[in-house]
Design a protein around this nucleic acid. Sequence first.
DNA 1: AGGTGTTGCGCAATCGATTGCCGTTCCCTA
DNA 2: TAGGGAACGGCAATCGATTGCGCAACACCT
Lengths: 343, 343
Amino acid sequence: MADGNPRASAKTMAEIAQLAGVAESTVSRALAGSTRVSRGTRERIFNLVREQGYQINSSARNLRTQRSRTIEVVIAISEATRQHFSDPFFSQIIGSIGDALAENGFDMLLSRQSPWSDAFGANALASNRADGVIIIGQGRDPSSLEDYAREHKNVVVWGADIPNRSYPVVGSDNFAGGQLVGRHLMAIGRRRVVFLGDVSHIEIGLRHRGLVAALTSTDQTSTQTLTLSMPFDGASAYDATRELFSDRVWHDAVFAASDILAIAAMQALADLKIRVPEDVAVIGYDDISVSALVSPALTTVRQDTAAGGRALVEKLLATIDGDLPGDLILPTQLVVRRSCGAT
Amino acid sequence: MADGNPRASAKTMAEIAQLAGVAESTVSRALAGSTRVSRGTRERIFNLVREQGYQINSSARNLRTQRSRTIEVVIAISEATRQHFSDPFFSQIIGSIGDALAENGFDMLLSRQSPWSDAFGANALASNRADGVIIIGQGRDPSSLEDYAREHKNVVVWGADIPNRSYPVVGSDNFAGGQLVGRHLMAIGRRRVVFLGDVSHIEIGLRHRGLVAALTSTDQTSTQTLTLSMPFDGASAYDATRELFSDRVWHDAVFAASDILAIAAMQALADLKIRVPEDVAVIGYDDISVSALVSPALTTVRQDTAAGGRALVEKLLATIDGDLPGDLILPTQLVVRRSCGAT
DNA sequence: AGGTGTTGCGCAATCGATTGCCGTTCCCTA
DNA sequence: TAGGGAACGGCAATCGATTGCGCAACACCT
């Protein structure tokens, strides 16, 4: 018993103050690291805190300070998009956001419902649960996001640099990414390209436009691009690919809007005994970790999620501090592996 | 202007009360759906709330009610384990937990640091953030988790049914899963099995024991199992597999503790021109969505993450309500695909 | 009319920490 | 010894909602 009776009961700051023989205000200041408390007092208080296993009640603190040191992260995945939350791309970016937030002493509230979607649901920002919001993806209809951003402070978004925005954006250069793919395909002599992805989704539309731009800006013989556009998940990408190639193999390349789609497409081709990359080259987007591990390894456009997540957090925290940070469009990089048939 | 001036300023319940000409208490009760408020008053209040875009301040509410309607979800990934947060297995289970929480009106606080790891970290100091904690994985050292669970109420864990626990557990039957694999391998005539995974990790150890039990409980000719045990990620699984098989192909099967490891192993084998499944059968664990899409499609043991996530939430909420829910060990299921060479 | 409920609502205490402002104490200097 | 600071710490208001208790008004019954 000499070592105290840890976390027996002690609960409030008042109790600590009582034990230390000081006022609550002093305990508060000591814990906050204020210089207005003498070293001796501070140490006495810290020892008691440790002994008693005292923890600040964050509800009370949040109420008083009017902030929560919590950030809401929203993965706005509509049913219609069919994109799965478990797409590793999301996990990667969420992971890096989480790390960056933790380093700054912020908690992360994860949500899959856009705060504007449910008219009468709870809105974390409005209700003081969160000091800011990071939204992953602009989705197919950026206008509701725009409305939301206008009415709320402290919103940053992972997405594309679209005009008439009122929020800072971090994203990768989707158009350039599409271009990289287009140029690469031209360079290795593939002209008849299938694009797989929902082009009405802003970012994916940009990838598509980049592809088309690269393919048509050349003076080589005309190219023919087929765009399969619909909400895609792995399964439907498989089906679409399988159907397209089941009659005959006319196209010689597939560019999928995400690695998940690309991997599904490769599977469909394999099941049709169509060789990748000999008969059809396949290129994906994201560079999720499994892409290096499939056979053949997937050529893809890397999005730097680590830098992206970190930047999102930096910009949001700056916004909260009253700054007006600019946007950040990260460069993309083509990661050439076997699936495209290049050297 | 007739339609009011939405979300102009209105902020506190007091303002709403003022506008409605009632006391704060009445507004509070109306919002809480108390029957002690007349229909007329209730409607008047609701209209004002809508008009003014009022949202209850959750810090204040949490302080007063002493709960937060928030659950913390912890992915306890140690550096040493090398397991990546972006493993789709985690995303899947987090997704289903998130859905179940949302249905019950709870928020999800996502954290990658076990609450016991940083004894005095920055925000370990704060409490009352969450009404309960869901911990994914017992890790390699369940004792610190045990300590934590003893000192805290409302903790449920995804993991294995280990003895001397003081928390409810939901998990899949790892031993049975390993057995399934062992039996299947025996049935298809593979005897020389390599196990890939960190057996000091509780759940993975069980999978391993299940495998060994199945392989040795038979009266067929003796089997030889090699266990490669170390913290694994995709890359190191690749390396280990590559090294093991580079001299000669003695083993005829690989059982990996997760699909990610299995996919990496398949890649290593492919790079060595070793055929899967003809020369070496490969079986994974988890059945993440990409496993059906790799070539050859991966035979694996399915963990029902959807049911698991839901059960975790149910049990936690029951615990919060004062119940003492039992454990739930979900059945596992062998999903036979091409990589094991079965029909 | 008086008694007994029932409804509907307000008063005021309360949750636990933060912080502006002010009061001591102590030390140093002139 | 008086005066001027600096250093340290306490008082009390405050954040915004919840809730036990009490009171008024009205209905119903005998």
